[in-house]
Design a protein around this nucleic acid. Structure first.
Length: 108
DNA sequence: TCCGTGACGCGAT
DNA sequence: CATCGCGCCACGG
């Protein structure tokens, strides 16, 4: 199911790196479904939720939660520039986007 | 079944 | 720059 794949993708973001909702969606094979990433984050636990931010490195969580996210990221060594995560330096590069709902017959 | 929701993204203003 | 509006779509009531 989509949420499982998305959660898997989120788990791949290493410490010290971040990604955006839209990027995660794309990397998971669901371009344009940033909102489903939010869903996945809201419902699942045990995920490195703090490593997912808005496009451009903006913290989208309001209030205290947002402050906690920022604190967690800084603890992992993520730097901020003008109130945003310094994406050029910390954005995680996912491998080629996996294809959705279609399995390849035989790989190689 | 229809409708509102949501930690979004992006182009326009 | 900061805001706004609209498109996006799985879920739950």
């Amino acid at each position: 199911m989509m949420l499982a794949i998305i959660r898997d993708t989120i788990r791949k973001i290493p410490k010290g790196k971040v990604s955006s909702y839209g990027e995660v969606a794309r990397a998971a094979g669901f371009p344009g479904r940033a909102r489903q990433v939010v869903w996945a984050l809201r419902n699942a636990r045990g995920l490195p939720w703090h490593r997912v931010v808005g496009a451009g490195g903006k913290i989208m969580l309001p209030g205290e939660n947002g402050l906690e996210q920022r604190m967690r990221l800084e603890t992992e060594g993520v730097a901020f520039r003008a109130g945003r995560v310094w994406m050029e330096k910390h954005q995680h590069e996912f491998g080629p986007a996996r294809r959705t709902a279609k399995k390849r017959a035989v790989k190689r």
